[in-house]
Each structure stands twice: as C-alpha cells, then as structure tokens.
Amino acid sequence: MLMWSAAAPAVGAAFLASTVEVVEAFTIVLAAAAMRGWRPALFGAASGLATLAGAVLLFGRLIDRVPIHALQLLIGILLLLFGMGWLRKAALRAGGVIPLHDEDTIFAKEAVRLGERGPRLKGSLDLVAAITACKAVMLEGLEVVFIVIAVGAGRGLLLPASLGALAACAVVLMIGALVRRPLSRVPENTLKFAVGVMLSAFGVFWLGEGLGIAWPGGDLMLLVSAALFLGAGLIGAALARETNVEIVA
C-alpha cells in the first residue's frame, strides 16, 4: 500500500516543478497561436507531447533493468546538479543579481520573433509556429519527465509523481484557457526556489542510499536535508542582495 507520508514530497516536488515548466511552455505556445494561428500551435504542441510520451515509454522500460543502487547514485548526482542549479539561480534572482523570469517579456519577444518570419501561406500548415510550439513543449516537458523519474523511480513512486505532474498541467492549462494571456502572476522564482530545495534534498538522499548509507531516521532525513538547503538558499539570497546593494550604493 502506498504510504502518503513517503509519496507526498515526491508528488509535491513533481507538482511544483511541473507548474513552472508548463507555465513556460504555455507562454511560447500562446505566442505561436496568437501570431500564427491556433491550428499549427496546437499541432506542434501535440507533436511535442507525443515525442515525450515515446521517450517516457522507452526510458521507463530501460529504468526497470538498472540495478537500484546504480539508479539511485545516477539520479542522485543528476538531481543535485539540476536542483542546486535551480536553487542557485533562484537565490541570485531573489538577490537581484540576475533578472526575474518575466513571462510577459518572453511572450512579447517570441511574438516579435514569430512576426518577423513572414506571412503564412493560406491552407498550408505553418511550420514556423508548429516547430516553435513543438520545441517549447519538448524542452520544458523533458525537464518535467526528468523530475518525475528522478523523484519517483528510486522508491517506486513513479505513478504518484506522474499524477502530481499531470495535475500541474491540468491546473495551468485550465487557468491559461480562462485568462488567455501569459501567466505572469505566478510567483515563479518562489516556486523554483522551493523546487530547488526539494530536488537538492532528494539528490543528497538518493546519493547517500546509492552509496550504501543507512540514513538515521530514514525518510525523515529528507526534511533535515531540505532544511539545510533552504537555509543555505535564504542566506545566499541575503548575501547576494547585500552585495547588490553595496554595488548600487
């Protein structure tokens, strides 16, 4: 039987990370649809999703054949690289060292880029829009797939993690369908910060298990690790902000 105390961190991480990624993909698909029409944008998005589904089926079967300790070690390293990368950027953004991710700006830039590609031919599928949408869905979707596999594969939690990601897709697409504009009010940096903390904590945990460390307290060590990363991220953001203020002054 599924223990929700064990599954909740995986589902939460998959949900929050997928929210960020789906918001980013939605912005690009929306720009493609607004500038070149919904038909090619949706065709491109569907093509991207189909390619991703194929990759998940292929790699899902391969994962079953990898010994659990090797899998935990590999996923642990990749999670640390990925999670700490997100946390680093989120801390630097919070400190004002690099600009915040702005969906309105990205939408405007993408719309200008698509507008410069010339008029589309009537009756034919607009490949520019289709490829743009396909690429956005594939690239952002790949990150979602990685996160779902990374937080779910080590403990047989692939299904709950996938449900978390699907729920995020449903929520973002429903809101997107209602407002029909870039979702710029989503607190993206806060989400990325939280996801960075969770993925980094999972990374340390899996790495330890892969190295044969029996963590005292078992899954509770995830919380300790998350607390340490949260502290490091917040102190890092404060230090970055301080440096930024010193430079401005």
């Binding site: 400190g95 330890g208 190295l211 340490l228 990363f229």
Partner: peptide, 15 residues
Amino acid sequence: VLLLGSPLLLLENVR
C-alpha cells in the same frame, strides 16, 4: 560530507 558539503557549496557559489 553530502549533507553539509552540498549546502555549503551552494552558499559559496551564490556568494
């Protein structure tokens, strides 16, 4: 090493 080294590395890198 993993539990303390990784957050410290992050802090140093951000700084």
